[in-house]
């Protein structure tokens, strides 16, 4: 943290969170379910940091975007060969919101965040498409909870947790911590191999 190269990143709240995520993940194995609980007022995007982490590890994977349409998410990611060829994107929001849909061999669309069965089937298909160890990022369970009942989400997570373990996946499930979803977080923690809390210390001092 005293490295002058990191100082600018440390002062930027979003980059700070990304660095903390990277640090937390680096201590984990290559497979398993990680529940990443994020407690940050200004935090809006973990994907760039996570992509950077997995790119360094040269681990291909899947990003499920419920928060942002793919057209916005792709803009925020560096246009590297890793992003263009080694990540399968699943967009759960564009068709529902009317956002433009990008065309490409690695872009997959669902009609809405309520299609949990379809999402589960698609993840299974994508896990089998990608060989070797792979990652999964779900951004975010909090947004899925807006469109689905907590019971459905906990069943969904339990179901994909088993797939994550059998298909050599490191699954990072992002969830924003709020007063309303503490019970859900407790249940989801039971299904997870690791729980990491990423706190924006500077933000909490405000």
């Amino acid at each position: 943290m005293t490295d002058p190269v990191d100082l600018e990143a440390y002062l930027d709240p979003n980059k700070r969170i990304q660095m903390k995520l990277e640090m937390s993940l680096s201590g984990l194995g290559k497979t398993g379910v990680v529940l990443a609980i994020i407690d940050a007022i200004e935090y809006s995007d973990a994907n760039a940091g996570l992509v950077r982490y997995f790119e360094k590890a040269d681990m291909p994977g899947v990003i499920v975007s419920v928060n942002k349409p793919l057209v916005d998410l792709i803009c925020k990611l560096p246009p590297t060969p890793f992003v263009q060829n080694k990540i399968e994107f699943v967009d759960c929001i564009s068709q529902m919101s009317g956002a433009p849909e990008l065309e490409g061999p690695h872009y997959n669309y669902l009609e809405s965040p309520q299609q949990l069965v379809e999402l589960s089937v698609l993840l299974n298909k994508l896990f089998q498409k990608i060989e070797g160890n792979k990652f999964l990022v779900v951004d975010s369970l909090s947004t899925l909870l807006i469109y689905n009942k907590p019971e459905a989400i906990t069943k969904f997570v339990h179901s994909i947790a088993n797939k994550i373990r059998t298909e050599k996946v490191l699954g990072v499930l992002l969830i924003i911590k709020t007063e309303d979803n503490m019970d859900v977080i407790k249940i989801l923690s039971q299904f997870s191999d690791s729980v990491i809390e990423v706190r924006d210390h500077q933000a909490s001092l405000k």
């Binding site: 949990l116 069965v117 589960s120 089937v121 689905n148 009942k149 019971e151 459905a152 989400i153 069943k155 969904f156 179901s159």
Partner: peptide, 21 residues
């Protein structure tokens, strides 16, 4: 079990469960 009805007819997702009541 979930059931799909698409342009190729019916498909039962026999290894998939329903998440909603």
């Amino acid at each position: 079990h979930p059931l799909e009805l698409g342009l190729n007819g019916l498909k039962v997702l026999s290894k998939q469960e329903l998440f909603e009541e």
